[in-house]
Design a protein around this nucleic acid. Structure first.
Lengths: 156, 156
DNA sequence: GTTTTTTATTAGAGTTCCCTAATTTTATTA
DNA sequence: TAATAAAATTAGGGAACTCTAATAAAAAAC
């Protein structure tokens, strides 16, 4: 069964996953850099994640994920990507979207995540070139709506 | 300027605000009940919120909000309501929406919150009776899309 | 192959938020 | 009003996550 993991543990696992994607393994300082915490904090967390069976880690060694760790990390990453896409659909600037997707990726109910996912799928398909025009117009209209709001705010 | 408050402090302030809306003042046990924490925990937090100037509180007395506390609580509540409406638009069941709106109401960038707000406004206006048909059709289509997905999942 | 620099680890401590158990104050009711 | 019940408080402690400062190990440079 799936042991419940804290949002912070998810952050560490996702980070390790992303580093591994780049260079095959992670080092304490890579994680420290990406999560902006001190190396000593990372060491402590790696020991904990090792004890819980999420990472392969020995003192002074490089770090990889166990199958269980990879499973958690991939789930978190999928959620993250969904939320990032979603935020971009509702026209949140990309840098802010990347940051806030991290806030959203933890602790939401699976039903909520499912609906976010469907929404993103729906909009993606609905705005494809081969779809009825009225569907494609939707994004256009929302964009216009936001532009008007922005202009009014500047004038006021 | 605005002192930064933790998500948890926001929770307490919103809860006090909601209780005050009902009966004019809050008691330790009201907050304890609503947030599902022990009374001793609430006492500790009330002392902290009093020291920070967010609540009016004396030992054994009833609790109200200072103007600063009310300001924070109202901001949190507005965000909460926006997220709840939003989740209902994307067809999250109401009980889950209420719960997850609490998760969303903290720590998102103001730009993100602005876009959520606009999205809710846009959909609300777009689906009003006096709007072009193609706008109203949007919700209908999304609902159908979700129903199909659900049916496929049951069959599979 | 030393010396120097970088990286990693340990020890000890702080913050936030929560708890239990014991006690005190306030409210109720007999 | 005295006895009882309910509510609030205090003391002491724990889990999660973070830090600094000191130390140790590994890697790089000489």
């Amino acid at each position: 069964m799936h042991e419940s993991v804290s949002g912070r543990v998810e952050d560490y696992l996702r980070t390790v996953y992303e580093i591994i994607e780049q260079k095959g393994y992670a080092r304490i300082k890579d994680i420290s850099r990406d999560l902006e915490v001190r190396p000593s904090t990372v060491v402590e967390m790696m020991r904990k994640l090792h004890d819980r069976g999420f990472v392969v880690y020995e003192k002074y060694g490089s770090i990889t994920l166990t199958p269980e760790g990879r499973e958690v990390a991939e789930a978190v990453k999928m959620r993250h990507d969904t939320f990032k896409k979603f935020l971009e659909i509702i026209l949140v600037p990309e840098d802010v979207a990347a940051k806030d997707a991290h806030v959203l990726e933890h602790r939401l109910d699976s039903k909520t995540i499912l609906q976010f996912t469907r929404f993103v799928e729906f909009i993606t398909q609905a705005t494809a070139a081969d779809r009825p025009k009225f569907m494609r117009r939707w994004m256009e209209q929302f964009r216009k709506y936001c532009e008007e709001k922005t202009n009014n705010r500047i004038k006021a």
